[in-house]
Design a protein around this nucleic acid. Structure first.
Lengths: 179, 179
DNA sequence: GTCTATAATTGGATAGAC
DNA sequence: GTCTATCCAATTATAGAC
C-alpha cells in the first residue's frame, strides 16, 4: 500500500474513532507510521486530506451506485441491505465524510448530497410512490446515523438490527406501494 | 435569560452550525456577548460546557418521553412526527449532543443511548413486532441524520420530507404489523 | 459576576537536510 | 520521499483587578 493510502486510511480511521477535534496532523502521521513532514509531502494541508477522503468516497460511491442499479434483488433491497454497518471500505469512507459534512465542510456536504440524490433516484425509479421512496432512503440514513453514534467501536449503540430482520419490512413497504 | 443559558445556547448553536473544531471558547463567549473570562466563571472548562448541554438534553428528553407516552396518536406516530426537523429546542439539543457523541464523548454517547432506548421501548410496547419497532426507530434516526448533515442552515440537505408525507408510511407499517 | 492580561500548550505549516 | 527543527497562530485555562 502506498504511503498516501496509508495516510488516508489513518485520517479516516481517526476521524471515525475520535472525531475531528482529535484528528490532528501529528496523530494521523503517527498512525500511518510517518512523520508530520512525511505527511505534508503527500498532503500539503489538512484540507487536502479532507479532499483526498472525499475523492475516495466519490469513487466508492460510483461503484456502489452501479451495483445498486444492477442488483437482482432491486435497488431498494440492495440499498437497505448494504446500509447495515459492516465496517467495509464504503461504510468507513461514508461515515467519515458524513462527519466532515457535519462540521460544515462544503465539499463533504456536496459529496453527501450527490450520493444520496443518486440513491434516491434509483429507489424512486423502482418504487414509483414518492413517500415510500423517501421512507426507504430514511431507513438507510438511520442505519448510518446509528453507526456514526458510538464510533466504529460499538456501532449502532447496542441497538443494532440485522439485514435479515430488516428486509421483510422493506418488502412490506414495496408491496404496500404497489411495486 | 441567565448568562449561563445564553452561553449554553451559544455553545449549542455554534456546535450545530460550525462543528466541534470551530467551537472554541472565544467564539462561544463572543456569541453569548461575554468575555472568555466571563464564560469560564460559569463553565470552568470546555468539558463542563458539554456536560451542561447533555444535562439540558436529559431534561428535554424526559419531557419528550412523557409526551410520547401520553400521545393520543400513539407513540410511533408521535415519535416519527416529532423527529422531523423543526429547529425547536429539543431538535437543537439532540443534534448538538449527537455531534458530541460522534466525537467519542462518553457522556454524550450514554445520553443518546438512554434516550433512544426509551423511545424504542415505547414503540415496542405499541407495535409488538420487534423488526417493525426497529424500523420505526430507524425512520426517526434517518430524519436526525438528514438534519445533522448540512448543518442547521439547510437541514436535510434538500431531501426533506414533511410529516404529512411520512405519516401514511408509518400507518402502513403499523397496520402490516397487526397493531 | 465579569473583565483584562497572560501563561502553557498544541496545532498547522515551512525550510532545509538527507 | 521522508525526516528534524522551527515558526507562528490559536486554544485552553489561570490570576487577579474591578
Amino acid at each position: 500500500m502506498s504511503a498516501r493510502d496509508a495516510l488516508l486510511d489513518a485520517y479516516q480511521a481517526t476521524l471515525l474513532e475520535q472525531g475531528q477535534r482529535a484528528t490532528t496532523l501529528s496523530v494521523v502521521a503517527a498512525r500511518a507510521g510517518v512523520s508530520k513532514g512525511g505527511l505534508l509531502y503527500h498532503f500539503a494541508s489538512k484540507e487536502s486530506l479532507a479532499e483526498g477522503l472525499i475523492a475516495r468516497l466519490d469513487e466508492l460511491m460510483e461503484e456502489d451506485v452501479a451495483a445498486m442499479r444492477d442488483a437482482q434483488e432491486g435497488a431498494s433491497r440492495y440499498y437497505v441491505r448494504t446500509s447495515v454497518w459492516t465496517g467495509g471500505d464504503f461504510d468507513l469512507a461514508f461515515v467519515a465524510v458524513a462527519q466532515l459534512a457535519q462540521e460544515s465542510h462544503a465539499g463533504a456536504q456536496d459529496a453527501m448530497r450527490r450520493g444520496r440524490q443518486q440513491w434516491l433516484e434509483l429507489i424512486r425509479a423502482e418504487v414509483g410512490e414518492e413517500a415510500t421512496a423517501r421512507a426507504i432512503l430514511l431507513l438507510g440514513d438511520g442505519l448510518y446515523f446509528d453507526a456514526a453514534l458510538g464510533g466504529a467501536a460499538e456501532p449502532s449503540g447496542g441497538l443494532s438490527i440485522s439485514p435479515e430482520e430488516l428486509m421483510p419490512i422493506v418488502d412490506r413497504l414495496l408491496a404496500a406501494s404497489g411495486t
